[in-house]
Design a protein around this nucleic acid. Sequence first.
DNA 1: CCGATGGGTCTGGTGAATGAACCTTCATCT
DNA 2: AGATGAAGGTTCATTCACCAGACCCATCGG
Lengths: 181, 181
Amino acid sequence: MALGTDYELQDCALARALEVVGERWSLLIVRDAFYGVQRFNDFLVHLGIPRAVLTARLNALVAAGVLRKEPYQQAPLRHGYLLTDTGLELWGPLYQLSRWGGRHATPGGPHHLFAHRACGTDLDLIGACPSCGGGPVPPAEVTMRPNPAHAGGHREDPVSRALVRPHPLLEPIASAAASAA
Amino acid sequence: MALGTDYELQDCALARALEVVGERWSLLIVRDAFYGVQRFNDFLVHLGIPRAVLTARLNALVAAGVLRKEPYQQAPLRHGYLLTDTGLELWGPLYQLSRWGGRHATPGGPHHLFAHRACGTDLDLIGACPSCGGGPVPPAEVTMRPNPAHAGGHREDPVSRALVRPHPLLEPIASAAASAA
DNA sequence: CCGATGGGTCTGGTGAATGAACCTTCATCT
DNA sequence: AGATGAAGGTTCATTCACCAGACCCATCGG
């Protein structure tokens, strides 16, 4: 969290976690990574974040082991940012915080709904599948779709456009390809 | 989150949630509230947060409906800050984020352990009681205790001292009384 | 050669966080 | 009465992070 002083004195795992993902934008970047965003430019336009801040956050998340860089082309070397196993384990807190926000801080309810990919049932409050039972569904088995009850204005960047239709989490957004098509 | 610009454009409940509890210190204040901290001064010394920032955060959390002010004496009017129902629902995300931090960002493991008050069993990853079954245990039925495996240096403020012994969540810490005794 | 694309870095301005000092109300001690 | 001290703030100068936009560099297509 770029904490100047005594954050590091906090005898609490929560403070440690917030040092990693508590800075402004960090959790939104991680959320976008779950949505399938991988490229610098896609994060940039989808989040509307200053370039310098995005660079700093991505590097910090890579250094913290939440994201890793993976080349996707060599010609001019380009790499995407992918969630590590550590990053994937943020799905639980992220989902729950998102649900909390949907209940208490989002007029009109949530904009996205999440379902168990295998059976199509919407996830419950803790991210488990009510019909399949068991614990929370891992993100790779979750699909997201827009909430039909929420008609709000849509943005027009490639990522927002791609997320208008149902989309499995972690599956790369077809950013460049989609915008060219 | 005191977001200058386009946070409010984020079509995501998570962004909304972060506007409320995403600012620096906010989530730590809420955590302390779960621990039973209620008074301005106890937050102040336990968190080591600047007074002006604490004032601002507490007021923001009250305005957001996460905390409420409750007078605890009249003589010079004094009030404590207590979690509302909305605030209590943050227990899930908070606990999970804390667990994540304990696993991935805390050398030596977590400093506190959480158990089901009724049966003494430690909570699992999602905050449920493995032996009693059912969903996540509500915070009022949880006790916290220091992790014996973690011998790290302890601080000496009243709150830290009170939390050395097992303590039910949400139960007010005996701050003034304890320091006088 | 020209421009576009992707992924950055650099810079100046602004607003928020920080730490320390100060203020107010009351209760208690001497 | 006067001094002391606790609780809960407010004010203020300084520092620091965020922001927006300009600029830079490599490569590819025409």
